[in-house]
């Protein structure tokens, strides 16, 4: 059993990776949810699945459909950009990206 601080650190790190800031208050609830989440994991662990392949789609299905390489010229790209909060000369603007 990992101690509460270790859990908090782990969850802080995961939150950071998932692009979230978590407040200390939030972290208390998150730890509780983590605990029950790990119980979910434990329930699954107790089930034997050694020869089983993961089910990715609800049922086994294949297609042979591919799209023909045809262009559809859209004319509303300026409308699409309207949803961006910051633009400049038809570009979307962001703070300098450090490579």
């Amino acid at each position: 059993m990992i101690c509460i601080d270790a859990k908090k650190n782990l969850l802080k790190e995961i939150s950071h990776q998932a692009m979230f800031d978590v407040s200390d208050n939030d972290l208390i609830d998150l730890v509780k949810e983590y605990d029950s989440f790990m119980k979910c994991v434990a329930i699954l662990e107790s089930i034997e699945t050694s020869d089983i392949t993961p089910l990715i789609y609800p049922y086994e299905i294949e297609t042979n459909f591919l799209r023909e390489d045809c262009i559809v010229h859209e004319t509303h790209h300026r409308d699409i950009l309207k949803n961006a909060k910051m633009t400049q000369d038809c570009y979307i603007k962001v703070p300098k990206v450090v490579k």
Partner: peptide, 17 residues
């Protein structure tokens, strides 16, 4: 997507949703 692949066009004009 069906948006065209074209170079040297106005920025953000050769794309869709």
């Amino acid at each position: 997507s069906s948006a065209p692949v074209t170079f040297g066009k106005e920025p953000n004009s050769m794309m869709n949703e």
